[in-house]
Nucleic acid binder design. Structure first.
Lengths: 138, 138
DNA sequence: CAGCATCCAATTAGATACTG
DNA sequence: CAGTATCTAATTGGATGCTG
């Protein structure tokens, strides 16, 4: 790094420091909807409605919010066609495609390992239920 | 898959369906503290206090909560030494090490690309400030 | 169609006090 | 040291109604 031009480049980012800006983008990425939106978007472009249909359970508010944050951070581009009715396309930017593989891998891992996790949860909860049950009679 | 023994294995997990259990583990992983804790843990084992010191800004409550969730899901093991004062060690399980690389990659990407993201944010906010400023006089 | 604005319910997170 | 318990503050998220 060293000679970052005029952009006040932040050198030696370290997410383990609370004040490090990298935490702010980590916050955006480390989010359920971000993971799913980026994955659903694929190579895009995709319209708002189509995106919504692919994301079971997302509300219009959350989708808008997530897309805005991604657009602001330069991970997703937004194209408005001034037609009636309006049409808005979303597509990953180069930066977005850059990170989408990483995010996808987390989602896919979740899908691949959910059974192991469920088994662990079950065992954990059983054990917890066994010891020191809430103070009742007996 | 097919012949999953007695464990009621969930086949064909799909995080895009709201009811799919894989969403529940995705929720645990897609979390700022999970990312940082797993990364800080490394190969472990690490004591609670040491872990806390490595995670700038985390409260005792959030660290406990995060570690409990990870333990429950089988990603982290917890070993209690019945000494005085007590000592508790945390270490990633095999499953945990399995996913830690993926989580680390997100954190590292955040550190590597924060400057690009900051520049994008700056430009976005500048543009937003330009158009339709809140209705004041003039 | 693709949103924004608003209100309200629920969840989450911080601070603080206490314990084996 | 490594927590638990509790109270409160702040944030998040859902539902609803409206608009170009």
């Amino acid at each position: 790094m060293g000679t970052t031009s005029d952009l006040r480049g932040y050198g030696g980012a370290n997410a383990y420091l609370a004040a490090c800006p990298s935490r702010t983008i980590l916050d955006v990425l480390a989010n359920k909807w971000t993971m799913l939106v980026i994955g659903a978007l694929g190579d895009g472009p995709l319209r708002f409605g189509e995106l919504r249909r692919r994301l079971d359970g997302i509300t219009q508010k959350m989708l808008t919010q997530t897309l805005r944050a991604l657009e602001r951070d330069g991970l997703v581009s937004r194209t408005v066609y001034p037609t009636i009715p309006p049409r808005v396309d979303y597509a990953p930017t180069e930066l977005g495609r850059n990170v989408s593989g990483l995010l996808d891998s987390i989602r896919i891992w979740s899908e691949d390992n959910i059974n192991t996790v469920l088994a662990s949860r079950y065992a954990y909860d059983e054990r917890a239920a066994m010891e020191v049950p809430p103070v009742t009679a007996g």
